[in-house]
Amino acid sequence: MPMGKRMTLTEAIERFVPDGASIVMGTAMEALIPFAAGHEIIRQKKRDLTLIGPISDILFDQLIGAGCVKKVVAAWVGNVSGGSAYNLRRAVEEGTPQPLEMEDHTNFTIALGLHAAALGVPYLPARTALGSDIQRGNDHLRSTICPYTGDRLIAVRAIEPDVAIVHVQRADEMGNCHLWGNLGVTIDAVRASRRVIITAEEIVPADVILSDPNRTLIPGFLVTAVVEQPWGAHPSPVVGYYNRDNDYFHEYHRETKTREQFHRWLQRWVLGVRDRSHYLERLGPDRCAALRPRRKAPSAPAEFGY
């Protein structure tokens, strides 16, 4: 299938995120969170999803509140700026809008589970979480004994998502991606998943990507769909493109304390907008301009001549 990976976000979500899918998102921690893709999932009313990620900032909370999610496999679900995530709390504490199954992890065990899948092994051993209630409460973090040393370890079961949705700085038409800044679990998440949807700030000619193969951390042959989506990670930051919109996270915290408030928030920012360009109109050009980098800081070119 050499051709036809470029598509709209609407098409990518329609084709590759079926109801009931498990999706890993938010793989670069607080940066590069694929909010545009998450909002499209909400608009398409996907149901019974399993969300996987180390931390998700407010994206998982939005999908939970919109009724898309039946299970979360994560280390942390909240609002990095505000603390609690109210939709998560309502789902777990009250079953609103529906009950939510939580599989609690640590950041390290999420990373190891994805790495195990990326390596093609059923589990990886670790020394974290021993004696904790996280380990006690999670059947995918079973105790084991090292066959060589006799040490007590946990066996972190491989995590194989149906879909990885990853936002990057730039990609070519075939899905070869350049990304930089902190990487979190992105590389393992891509290798661990059956399908990969890339949203990119820019689609660039293949020669741009080929000029710096060490920065090509996602090779295109692993990628299912490529979407050009400027501002696709707002309000999270994308190094070199825009900074974190801290106010947006504080506003979300203030404006989602009750279910009614959340409905208004969802209408304003997700259900009531057609697509990302409509969202950006709501955001306004001044707010976007204020988030742009204030200084240039290019890396020195690496010489690949021979």
């Binding site: 990095v80 800044g181 902190n182 990487l183 974190r244």
Partner: peptide, 27 residues
């Protein structure tokens, strides 16, 4: 910084690696 992934924490960092790198050093 508001979060550890804010661009000012990337600018002139010693290294930007992945989570397993730093968790491995910790372990």
């Amino acid at each position: 910084l508001y979060t550890m992934s804010d661009p000012p924490n990337i600018y002139r960092a010693t290294s930007c690696a992945d989570m397993l790198t730093v968790m491995g050093l910790l372990q």
